[in-house]
Amino acid sequence: MTAISKQPLGAAYSATQAISQTPKRKNLIAVFALAPALAVFFAFWLLPFSRLILMGAEADRSSGISAYLTILTHRQYLISLVTTVTISITVSLAAVGIAGIAGFFLARHRFIGKSTLVAILTFPLAFPGVVVGFLVIMLGGRQGALAQLSLWLFDERWMFAYSLAGLFIGYLYFSIPRVITTVMAACENLDRSLEEAARSLGANSWQVTKDVIVPGIAPALLSTGAICFATSMGAFGTAFTLGTRLSILPLNIYGEFTNYANFAMAAALSVVLGLITWVALSLARKLAGGNVGAPV
């Protein structure tokens, strides 16, 4: 690195030219081959996205200043931003904690009905967010199972479905299957002789877990946690079903856009949401060193 930067500018220039000239023909073919993909990329991604970024810089309808600035200066948006990030982080941590242990147990033990259990545990992946929201209402809504039980026991209705707690349960519900499947795969790839080596040196099972297993599956935990975070940040269906009064980013974007026609604010919120999610994913990818894909 330093060697290159110390070279005179001309040297670096001629070097790059020498490299680019030889495979010139190949490059030309590559450009032609990539043209359709590039066209799609420009038309459906780069153009709308640049427009979105620019739109977010326009004046907000109520405050009159740039929408980006409005997010940072207005309490209402800041709270919504913090709430969304907080609930996403909490859900990711809880999912990794609960499903990490369950996934490890499932990967290590054989028992009758295991494949059925795994199938049931991963079933929520098949549901859209709306259905998940509906399930949460059936559990913690006005007529939900919890309300019925508490009514019978204590003569009062306990509800959580229309609050952040309901949202937490809903997000956890669709995060757990992802973590379980990832952790199971990671555990199966663990080198058993590492655990045997640690045990031969006197390590008990707690020490083996702490020193060998957790470090071994850490990249998987990190990446699956990041994906849970990204999914929770952008989840719309569940939140929408549970109530539009919840102050979280996806609902705010929807509200600004459809109810108030405040396009600048909707755009600015979208950009912020996308940016936070993208940073989280790329950070996890860097730390984990493996493949952390986009949310499925």
Binding site: D191, S193, E196, A197, S200, P215
Partner: peptide, 12 residues
């Protein structure tokens, strides 16, 4: 004390 074919060293 045990020595394994694949070394089994702790990579972390």
């Amino acid at each position: 004390g045990m020595v394994f074919q694949n070394y089994a060293l702790f990579p972390n």
